[in-house]
Nucleic acid binder design. Sequence first.
DNA 1: ACCATTATTTTTAGTAATTCAAAATAACTG
DNA 2: CAGTTATTTTGAATTACTAAAAATAATGGT
Lengths: 156, 156
Amino acid sequence: MTPEPASSTDYWSTRLREQGLRVTHQRLAALEVIDHHPHSSAEEIYRLLKRAQRVPTVTLQTVHGIVNDLTAIGLLRRIDLPGKDSAARYETRVGDNHHHIECVRCGRVEDVDCARGEAPCLLPSDTHGMTLLEAQVTYLAVCHECELTLRKETHA
Amino acid sequence: MTPEPASSTDYWSTRLREQGLRVTHQRLAALEVIDHHPHSSAEEIYRLLKRAQRVPTVTLQTVHGIVNDLTAIGLLRRIDLPGKDSAARYETRVGDNHHHIECVRCGRVEDVDCARGEAPCLLPSDTHGMTLLEAQVTYLAVCHECELTLRKETHA
DNA sequence: ACCATTATTTTTAGTAATTCAAAATAACTG
DNA sequence: CAGTTATTTTGAATTACTAAAAATAATGGT
Ligand SMILES: [Mn+2]
Ligand SMILES: [Mn+2]
Ligand SMILES: [Zn+2]
Ligand SMILES: [Zn+2]
């Protein structure tokens, strides 16, 4: 059985060391922040790290390096949503192949459970001779608040 | 004196005028090029337009303007594929809600017919109170050529 | 066909997201 | 605790795209 870590810091530290990465307070703080603010962009993570005085000296370039490294070892998942306001977003919920629904107006993102739970959860009618890795599904929608806003605008 | 077959030029001209847009040789040439090279990026369209001396004076900014305008009136479809080295791609096959399979290594993109043919072709387990517009499906894969290349690299 | 109107293209700059490389810093090892 | 070197910081570059003003050309009326 897996022993429960005393704190989330211990948990992340163990995961980092397992992968041969050093345990820095920047990485730990980033993981905390992403865990509490899923689907954040590098810029948002950066602001959250500075705002709470967690890592006042951190730079945006460091955040990019961190999310790249942590994604590479499977501690984070990167999601690329469509739209020209395209900044990659990151989350700690990995390994369950879940999907996302995005409001095309305000960019709000919510999780959508996968029916199958592992990739690929959907099969193409034709693979064109390729080896399928994953079916990436993104639901585009308009959230309730934006619907109301749009209705007002249409009225005027 | 029209170097292009009158039929396709006439077709696009009619579509443009229907939408109140002027028929410019830049727009016509762009539509031709995209029709013959589906899933091209603005940069690729730009190079294709200059290469064949079709529109030697065209600029990349113009291509961006054209694809934006033509997408807005439904003559083109814009596809945003995942992977951060990915520029938006454009195609003339519109209105059938088809999907795509992309090689994650070389970026090759092929069409995948939609089982339903119109959006949304898939329903989320939870809409989170949002009004669903579309289920965007992208299959990530490794093409045959890339598979062979990767096998060689692993060997060495 | 000619001209006027104005949409479109071109020219010139600027922005946002991300990457790269060298120098400074700070984790791990012994 | 000191040495090694991964990581962060600093500073600059790149890519994809947008913005605004000046030049050009497509349409409509004569
Ligand atoms: Mn998620
Ligand atoms: Mn297609
Ligand atoms: Zn919204
Ligand atoms: Zn390939």
